[in-house]
Design a protein around this nucleic acid. Structure first.
Lengths: 250, 250
DNA sequence: GTACGCCGTCTTGTATGCAAGATACGCAAA
DNA sequence: TTTGCGTATCTTGCATACAAGACGGCGTAC
């Protein structure tokens, strides 16, 4: 039954010829567990599930029209990611927003992004990855996107793209993970038009600095940009989260 | 059959007003799933499960004396962590060692540790966290630990402790995760006495530099230390992994 | 009115049953 | 010998059954 190990004599690299390890994303029919996982995560991100909310596996299974098995798989995943907690024989609950943790995640995010930008500026080859970013962020004011929701998505993509372009997939994976965790508070930064404008301006400057390989300038701009966002989020968080909580029960 | 009466439907919403019971049981009951998870992870770390090995859920469940349910839970977790892959209706397999990924993980590790040391040196308060590290790594040569296995464990603890002491639990969590992933190759660095001696010497120097708040020195020492380890691992990996593979088939 | 204890219901953790389909193997044909 | 095909077996994903124990509500004592 156990298949022989291929290439006993050369266990090293044959993997690179066959990317079977990589998830076959396209053809995969998306299991029920994955669907449930995404559904719950969205419920949390969109304030339909709020900190302190309690629920049971059966409840969720009934609501989503599946059995407890895929529900449990999704729940355990979210538990491991820090969104949920399970009480033995006593149901699940949504974890409270932990502002200390948001701070720490912002720190981590900043560390990763600054390193990424440093590497981009030091890189010899051309930076094609920036093209698509410039196409969005260097638009004249009239053509800009003004929908906060949409800008928030693009903002996430901007920062993640920088890290991905730096060429270390592990750093990018961690960065993506951090992004998921801070999404709830970070999105609140894009509820004011003035902040959206500022974001456009700062992203543009950062992109230009990277293009010119001005490492020092790019990193200090990016650091300031992230700090500004963090300060803004810190300021409006409690109030806005409360509003969101009320509004979501309509 | 109809033991449950869904029509009764206890008031669902009041649950959200009820404060989540954050009762932390003193000792986690350690579910079967967690046991299985640890067992498989150890099997991989100790070369009892090798890249390319294939197995089924039933096989594992029988061997470990549990049902498929906890086994599946553990397997899916290891899948998400990158250790295993599942082929739809065709069994599980251990992922190949990906040396590019090890390189990227070493990069990430270095980034985290250098930042941690920088923060430690900049910190105003005393650094009690270093006491326990010094107790192990500043020993005179005669009293040192010479068991590679044990030193490898202590080495992991050393580096993780530095990051933990820096005070950002999220960075520490990522670092711990990285540590788990590179363990397989990293341990091979401690199979030679000379490398163990070097590790003692370099850890001692790093600790002293941090004590003296010599940030520049501490970070460059640490960077060199990690680089040396990485180079060593890079050199002996293929050979040693092959040996380990053969040896484990006894 | 208040405190306390018992009991039934509910909840998770685990085991088992079932279905669709992927894989392997034997056998026949060239 | 090699190739192709049909089938039996195996495997995962999902649904369901079961067990130990946590929680809440009710009744009782005062």
């Amino acid at each position: 039954m156990t298949r022989r190990n291929p290439a006993k004599s050369a266990p090293a690299k044959p993997a690179s010829t066959r990317p079977a390890v990589r998830k076959r994303a396209a053809a995969q029919p998306a299991t029920r567990a994955q669907t449930v996982y995404a559904a719950i995560k969205d419920d949390i991100a969109d304030f339909r599930l709020l900190p302190g909310d309690r629920f049971t596996e059966t409840e969720l299974a009934d609501r989503l029209g599946v059995s407890r098995t895929p529900v449990r798989e999704a729940l355990y995943q979210l538990q491991r990611e820090g969104f949920l907690s399970v009480q033995f024989r006593s149901g699940w609950s949504v974890n409270p927003y932990d502002f200390d943790r948001f701070e720490n995640l912002y720190d981590l995010r900043q560390l990763l992004e600054l390193e990424a930008v440093r590497r981009l500026c030091d890189r010899k080859e051309s930076l094609e990855a920036l093209d698509v970013l410039e196409a969005y962020w260097l638009l004249p004011e009239a053509e800009r996107d003004n929908d906060g929701r949409s800008v928030a998505r693009q903002d996430e993509a901007f920062h993640l793209s920088l890290v991905e372009a730096a060429g270390n997939p592990e750093m990018a994976r961690v960065h993506a993970d951090v992004t998921e965790r801070i999404r709830i508070v970070r999105r609140l930064d894009f509820t004011q038009q003035e902040r959206i404008d500022t974001t456009y301006a700062e992203h543009a400057e950062i992109l230009k600095a990277i293009r010119r390989r001005r490492s020092e300038r790019a990193t200090s701009l990016l650091a300031a940009h992230i700090e500004a966002s963090r300060a803004e989020v810190r300021k409006i968080t409690l109030h806005k989260l409360f509003e969101a909580r009320r509004g979501s029960w309509g």
